[in-house]
Design a protein around this nucleic acid. Structure first.
Lengths: 404, 404
DNA sequence: CCGAATTGCCAAAACGTTTTAGATCGCTAA
DNA sequence: TTAGCGATCTAAAACGTTTTGGCAATTCGG
């Protein structure tokens, strides 16, 4: 008994290697490699011969051998926690679609794993030591996120979707959560609303915290008391349970407007509003952050909701562009602020609402100074909302140099 | 000018290798490897020394070297088409969550790529030749699917989520689409409904086609004309556009019941029903296939919808179990039929509906013979529907031997 | 006390690439 | 004539593991 484990017999199907190809053509493996990889020290005739032979035999270099010698995997790591049903988050799919599209264009793929231990960083550490990937995608950062600390120490490329205040020198892709929500609530207030419910995500995540801070700033700017806005938090990281939360919000009979942190909750909430006997857009104003979730059909609500729209698909693409840049040219950190657009119904439908005075909407005052294409645009009517087919891909925003 | 491309300088951070560890301990690399891999021909004292040293130095074997020599990647490939917005399909996330959880438990990860060419098989072929993964996950098969043909020829492990009639010797995980929908429509008819709208997915996919066939069988069994059921197809592979399709369905004033192929469409359709002045569950019966999409909150409709529930999360897990089995022990193909449960409101709420006669529900006659735990269960009230937190993981069903 | 079995370890081969550092050959310029 | 040079090609060394086959030393059975 010399060993305890036995090896499975190698699969019979023998694949073509570079050695076979060299033998077949009477060339050295060096030449094959260099011909296929576009080096200039191989004759044009030879190169054509090699390429043709590779094509007909279907030769493809073994990726693991290549990875081993080149110390590069051409794969990005994406590790998600398995808990809280967070995996089934619809926002995730949208980002994922963008990530995968852009990754494919750059000839990368994405290695996915579920973090199963309490220690959030264990799998990251392992993937780094095993050289499984070239870089990481980090999402949903929390204040003082240990993953960022680890990756900075390890010196591995990574991009955070979102931002976190504790660390500074890292790459991120984000929207101006604080500014957007300051503007949104500001518009509501300036339209005459005096009691507003804000149904936010889980504020232990930075993005939701920033949104709340933005709301607070809008109040402070106008010397209004905190009670003007009642904040309700979803237990789900990205916001669900919209039905229940809306029911809670409606308990306050004086509330004339609801602001949602995600369109899922906004749509879910419609049932609760209807059940309460009110009608959205007439008895109560509804505004929401719209992340362009491709399968949340907002078109039935196009004349009811005001919203701020930003593309998660584009964010996913921007994340990959940044990762590729870090891995292939310049490892210095960059932040990318994604654009957002305001689509506001006139006066947030304030006319006729109890407790409001008719006033022109004045969306987007302040907070958007550093976001040119994010500058609020007012539109009377929501266009392009139907989900008939492929959405156009937005340009991935613009770059912001991080201060040193 | 000897080469056209330049190599990036190696990253300074030098990682610990097995050689370093051997040197440090005064042992051969063979011993390190065998100690760490649990072979019995290394002394217990030595083994402890090695394990301790590996722990303190944080040594982890280079995964690419390991893959190269072992001819095994411990990764499964999942390739999706980038088109049609199919990527953002919410059903996908649910399966994905299950796949990743099970994969993690077996120490696999998932390599993801987007198929960007028209040729659906190109990337598969490439991944096989490059030995990038140990096996594949195939989803949404279409009749005579070229991917299955390719993978069978290549002799690579793979599991199809769904089934396809043309090929036989392959592994699959599926529900009994045909039997379930035969039973569902049968129950509707037997409850007295004489005009039914069936809002199905895209019938160029096998799963939707099977469902339609099942519906047809229910009619044939009862000698009813095809017009009894009006079929409307979503352009989206897995079913969306529920609002518009429901509006179409409601044009038929005599229709007393709507059957949805997915809960997304069912929920979307609610707005259309409400807008038409009818009330679901009173003026019109609603039944749906419920794939337990974690973020489609069905609880507001718990007393309105009848449904058949099956867990995509469990399906994802079953897929991985099957892949692991194929890769690590027995490569012969197995089919796994996932269980489903009927949750029927009494009589499908037929009482008081125009054009129906009161009749007891008789769900699930026929079609379920080979699906023991899929045998319809009737429940008066839908329980456990709220989405408060983690869903329990269902057992992955039972095995069905494929005929030879 | 001797041969055989067992225990604990190791050198070297293999996995399939890329890259380094030449080697060869014909041509040109001095 | 020859040194130099450009154009092609290649042998060998990496990359970091696992596995094969074997070698000592120790223990054991008789």
């Amino acid at each position: 008994m010399s060993k305890v484990k036995t090896r499975r017999p190698a699969r019979p199907g023998t694949r073509m290697t570079i050695k076979d190809l060299a033998q077949k053509l009477g060339l050295s493996i060096t030449t094959i490699s260099r011909a296929l990889n576009g080096y200039s020290d191989v004759g044009e005739a030879t190169r054509q011969r090699v390429i043709e032979a590779a094509r007909t035999t279907g030769y493809r270099p073994n990726r693991n051998a290549r990875r081993l010698v080149m110390q590069r995997t051409h794969s990005f790591g994406w590790i998600r926690t398995d808990s809280e049903g967070l995996f089934a988050d619809p926002h995730f799919v949208e980002v994922f679609a963008g990530v995968l599209r852009a990754a494919g264009q750059h000839n990368y793929d994405v290695t996915f794993a579920a973090e199963r231990d309490k220690d959030q960083t264990e799998l990251y550490d392992r993937y780094i030591r095993e050289q499984s990937v070239d870089g990481f995608i980090i999402e949903l950062p929390r204040p003082n996120d240990p993953r960022i600390t680890l990756l900075l120490e390890a010196g591995v490329p990574f991009v955070v979707h979102g931002r976190e205040a504790r660390h500074t020198h890292y790459s991120w892709v984000d929207v101006d959560n604080r500014g957007l929500f300051r503007a949104l609530v500001g518009a509501m207030i300036d339209s005459g609303h005096k009691r507003i419910a804000f149904i936010n995500g889980d504020e232990t995540y930075c993005y939701a915290l920033e949104r709340r801070i933005g709301v607070g700033e809008a109040l402070a700017e106008r010397d209004l008391p905190p009670e003007t806005v009642r904040v309700l938090n979803s237990r789900h990281p990205m916001g669900m349970f919209g039905f229940q939360l809306t029911q809670q919000a409606l308990e306050d009979k004086k509330a004339t407007a609801i602001l949602y942190s995600s369109s899922i909750m906004a749509v879910e909430g419609q049932a609760a509003i209807a059940r309460s006997g009110r009608r959205a857009g007439r008895d109560i104003a509804v505004a929401t952050m719209d992340d362009e979730l491709r399968y949340v059909d907002l078109s039935p609500y196009a004349n009811i909701f005001s919203f701020v729209r930003s593309s998660l698909h584009a964010a996913g693409q921007a994340i990959v562009e940044e990762l590729v840049r870090q891995c292939e040219s310049d490892p210095s950190p960059h932040g990318t602020m994604m654009p957002a657009r305001f689509h506001m119904l006139p006066g947030l439908k304030t006319e006729g609402l109890p407790g409001t005075a008719a006033a022109p909407p004045a969306p987007g005052q302040g907070g958007m100074s550093q976001a040119p294409s994010g500058r609020p645009e007012t539109s009377k009517r929501c266009s392009n909302l139907s989900l008939t087919g492929e959405k156009p891909i937005l340009s991935p925003g613009w770059k912001v140099e991080l201060p040193d």
